[in-house]
Design a protein around this nucleic acid. Structure first.
Length: 142
DNA sequence: GCCAACGTTGGC
DNA sequence: GCCAACGTTGGC
């Protein structure tokens, strides 16, 4: 299976990119929405994700890697509640603001724009490449 | 602070 | 199984 791309939202007051960098890896938990859980279940080790800060920031700030298969949250009794482990890869040289994504017609179909409440967002490869370009990530880094 | 866009719940 | 009422999320 080829690598897939995602965007993971987090409220920075709750768990920020800097927390992920400090921890080295983390269990991406707290997702309860059915569509978001469906996306979590589709993740595979090696998939990449942008970490996006909600609230006042509203911008993608770093790249992370999925490092586990999906598994039920060990701290929850509901087996529906799926988590994955992630680790930080690198901060974005230039964080990508939601406003800039919205202003770009290439992202008209992006789930981040179309469904603002979705916390785990699938990113197509084309969208991913464009986002990295906007972030100032050299294409050779991929 | 408000509101749009969802999701969930519970009565029927 | 429908839908009104309510709650939540996240952007504005």
């Amino acid at each position: 299976m080829s690598k897939r791309f995602w965007l993971l939202k987090t409220e920075p007051d709750c768990y920020a990119w800097s927390d992920l960098v400090r921890d080295g890896r983390t269990v991406w938990d707290g997702v309860a929405n059915n569509v978001a859980l469906k996306h979590l279940r589709e993740m595979q080790p090696g998939d990449e994700a942008l970490i996006y800060h909600t609230g006042d920031e509203r911008r993608a700030v770093g790249r992370a890697e999925v490092i586990s298969t999906p598994y039920p949250d060990p701290h929850q009794s509901d087996p529906r509640l799926i988590v994955v482990d992630v680790r930080p890869l690198a901060p974005l040289p230039r964080p990508v603001a939601l406003a800039d994504i919205k202003a770009d017609p290439a992202f008209a179909d992006f789930a981040l724009v179309r469904q603002s409440r979705l916390s785990v967002v699938p990113v197509t490869e084309a969208q991913w490449q464009r986002l990295l370009a906007m972030a100032g990530v050299a294409s050779s880094a991929e």
